[in-house]
């Protein structure tokens, strides 16, 4: 075939795409490109990430026993934990005072973190959770080191675990609040 057909069709594709963007409701309705475009005007509107999205790590401080498992398994060793043992009042009257691990320091350096999720996965005490929150960039790299109070603040943004697709045998876990 000659030079014409394929090239004309191509023009049609681009024209159609432009019209679909400018007139998302059909050609006779008023144009509204901001609806037709697939992009999102970021600071003004925000896209909700998937509930499982790995945005930032949240720490449920009460659950953490400073067992160091997460710090050991982290592939780039960016979790810093220090703790000490404390005597807690006995659970029953007259019992022995309990040993309790108290966290002194729990820092995650998000400048090093590669968001692999291994720490969250290995934590045996349900102390770490993923939050899909992603707006925590800082002008200074050192500020990306989140200490335990900052990590605990993220707990509010942790969504509930989703239910599973049919046919699944996994149990839906609960986020401790």
């Amino acid at each position: 075939m000659g030079l014409v057909p394929g090239m004309i069709k191509g023009l049609g594709v681009t024209a159609k795409s432009a019209i679909e963007t400018i007139f998302p409701d059909g050609p006779l309705k008023p144009p509204s490109p901001s609806k037709g475009a697939v992009t999102i005007q970021y600071p003004h509107e925000k896209e909700a990430p998937a509930p499982r999205a790995r945005g930032v790590i949240a720490l449920q401080e009460d659950n953490c026993t400073a067992c160091m498992l997460c710090a050991r398994e982290c592939p780039d060793w960016c979790i810093y934990i220090e703790g000490h043992k404390e005597k807690a009042p006995p659970r029953r009257a007259g019992g022995k005072p309990r040993q309790k691990n108290k966290l002194d320091r729990f820092d995650i350096d998000f400048a090093l973190c590669m968001y692999c999720g291994i720490c969250v996965e290995v934590c045996p005490f349900d102390a770490l959770f993923w939050s899909p929150e992603y707006e925590f960039s800082e002008p200074r790299i050192a500020d990306l080191l989140h200490d335990k109070s900052r990590l605990a603040e993220w707990m509010e943004t942790v969504p509930d675990f989703e239910s599973y697709e049919s046919g699944s045998e996994a149990k839906v876990r609960k986020v401790p609040r």
């Binding site: 509930p51 499982r52 989703e162 239910s163 697709e165 699944s168 996994a170």
Partner: peptide
């Protein structure tokens, strides 16, 4: 795998 599919994914 790490986890199962979320509802509605299919």
């Amino acid at each position: 795998l790490k986890d199962d599919l979320p509802a509605g994914w299919i």
